[in-house]
Simulated assay, not measured.
Amino acid sequence: MMNRTVGDLVHNHRVVALPPTASARDAARRMRDEHVASVVVTDEGAHAVGIFTERDLTDRVVAGGLDPDSTLLGSVMTRCPVTTALDTSVGDALRCMTVNTLRHLPVVADGRVVGLISMRDFVGDELAMIDREKDVMETLTERL
Rank of each mutant, 00 (worst) to 15 (best):
L94G: 02
V76P: 12
T88L: 05
L66K: 12
V62N: 08
A48S: 05
R55S: 04
T98Q: 08
G65S: 06
I51C: 04
V82Q: 10
R95F: 10
R79M: 13
D67G: 08
I51M: 06
M77R: 07
V107A: 07
V82A: 13
R103C: 00
D43Y: 14
A85F: 11
G74H: 04
P106G: 07
G91Q: 06
G64S: 11
T71A: 14
E44A: 07
V41A: 10
V107Q: 04
V40M: 05
G50E: 06
P81Y: 11
A46H: 04
T88W: 14
G74Q: 09
G64Y: 12
D56G: 02
T78R: 00
L66Y: 13
V61W: 13
A93V: 03
V39M: 02
A93M: 03
L102N: 01
N100F: 13
T71I: 08
S89L: 14
T84N: 01
T101P: 00
A63T: 08
D92Q: 10
V41P: 07
C80F: 11
V61N: 05
A48W: 03
V39I: 08
C96Q: 14
V107D: 02
R95S: 14
P81Q: 06
R55F: 01
M97N: 02
R103I: 00
G74M: 06
H47P: 15
L86I: 13
D43M: 15
R103D: 00
V107I: 05
T98V: 14
G64I: 15
H104W: 01
C80K: 08
L66N: 10
T78W: 00
D59P: 05
L102Y: 00
T101G: 01
L94F: 10
S75P: 04
D43R: 09
G50K: 11
V62G: 07
L105A: 01
C96W: 09
C96G: 13
L73D: 04
C96H: 14
V76E: 07
S89I: 07
T101F: 01
P81T: 06
D43H: 13
T84D: 01
T71L: 03
I51V: 15
T42H: 12
T84F: 01
D87M: 10
C96F: 09
A46T: 08
V107K: 03
L102W: 00
V90G: 03
E54S: 15
F52C: 05
T71F: 05
T58A: 08
C80L: 07
S70K: 09
L57Q: 04
L72F: 04
V62E: 14
C96V: 11
R103M: 00
T53H: 00
R79L: 14
R60S: 11
V82M: 12
V40H: 05
R79V: 13
D69N: 08
T84M: 02
D67K: 14
M97F: 02
C80I: 06
L73M: 06
T88G: 04
V41S: 12
V82P: 03
N100L: 11
R60E: 14
L73K: 08
P68R: 11
L102K: 00
S89Q: 06
G65M: 03
T53V: 01
L102S: 01
L86E: 15
R60P: 04
M97L: 12
D56Y: 02
